[in-house]
C-alpha cells in the first residue's frame, strides 16, 4: 500500500505536535501547519506557516500536496484556540478570533481536503471538539459554541461527502495539560474531571487512539460520529 498522506493543523505544540510525531511513527507522510514556525523537525514531516482561517494560505498547502503526492488520505483539524473567560468579559475581537480559527478554519480545510480526497474516492477527516460542549461548561461560552459548530459541521459534511468515499468524524477530549488550559484555575479543572465517568485528565495518546480508529480503512462505515473521552 502507498504511504498514507496525513495533513494535521495546529502542529507547532500541544496535541497537534503529538499527533504529527505519532503519525510519522506510524509511517505516514505528515504535512502540518500553524501560525508560527516549529522549533523541532522530523523526517517525514513538512511544516507550513499558515493561519487555518486564511483561504489563500490554505489553498497553497493543498496545491503543494496535490503537486507532490497527487492525493490526500487523512485530514485532522486540530488547530484550535480558546477563551476561558466569562461571556460578559469577552471582547468581540476574541469572539471573532475563536470563530475564525475553530469554525472557519475547520470548514476551509474540510472543503479543500475533500476536493483532493474526492479524486481518489477515499478520505478520512477527523475534527477536534471537546467535552465542554455536552457539559455546557460555563466560562467558555464562545469556545464551546465554536466547538458545537464543529460538531454540526461534522454531521452535515459526513452526509455531503459520503458519496465521495470520505468519512468525517469528531473526537471530544477531556482536559489535557497543554497551553490551551494553562490559564484555567485548578479547582475548575478538578470540577470538570469529577463530572467524568473516569475521573482523570486526558492525554494526547488518548486522542490519537480514537483518531487511529477513525483512520482505519475498515472504519469506512463509520461517519458523522463523535466520540467523547472519559465517559462524558
Amino acid at each position: 500500500m502507498d504511504t498514507p498522506i496525513t495533513l494535521i493543523t495546529g502542529t507547532r505544540k500541544g496535541i497537534g505536535r503529538y499527533l504529527a510525531e505519532h503519525y510519522v511513527r506510524c509511517g505516514h507522510r505528515v504535512v502540518g501547519c500553524s501560525r508560527g514556525d516549529v522549533d523541532w523537525s522530523l523526517d517525514g514531516y513538512q511544516h507550513y506557516v499558515a493561519d487555518v482561517s486564511d483561504e489563500q494560505a490554505a489553498r497553497r498547502i493543498f496545491t503543494d500536496v496535490r503537486k507532490k503526492y497527487g492525493r490526500l488520505d487523512h485530514l485532522i483539524n486540530n488547530a484550535g484556540i480558546g477563551s476561558m473567560n466569562h461571556s460578559l468579559l469577552t471582547p468581540l475581537s476574541t469572539v471573532n478570533a475563536v470563530l475564525n480559527t475553530n469554525v472557519v478554519g475547520t470548514f476551509l480545510f474540510c472543503r479543500e481536503a475533500a476536493k483532493l480526497m474526492k479524486t481518489n474516492a477515499y478520505g478520512r477527516i477527523v475534527n477536534l471538539t471537546t467535552v465542554a460542549v455536552p457539559l455546557k461548561l460555563e466560562g467558555e461560552a464562545i469556545y464551546v459554541a465554536s466547538k458545537a459548530a464543529v460538531l454540526s459541521l461534522t454531521g452535515v459534511l459526513a452526509r455531503e461527502l459520503a458519496p465521495f468515499g470520505i468519512t468525517v468524524n469528531a473526537v471530544g477530549p477531556v482536559a489535557i495539560e497543554t497551553d490551551l488550559i494553562r490559564s484555567v484555575p485548578k479547582e475548575k479543572i478538578d470540577r470538570l474531571v469529577s463530572r467524568q465517568a473516569i475521573p482523570r485528565l486526558g492525554t494526547a495518546a488518548d486522542v490519537a487512539n480514537v483518531i487511529d480508529f477513525y483512520l482505519l480503512r475498515t472504519s469506512g462505515f463509520i461517519t458523522g460520529q463523535c466520540l467523547f473521552l472519559g465517559g462524558v
Binding site: E55, K115, T119
Partner: peptide, 22 residues
Amino acid sequence: VTLVVAVEQAIEDELGVSVSLA
C-alpha cells in the same frame, strides 16, 4: 460538484493559478 473541482484543478495545472469557483 465534481465538475467544479475538476475545472479548478485543470486551471491550476494548465494556467498555474489557484482559484475557488465556489
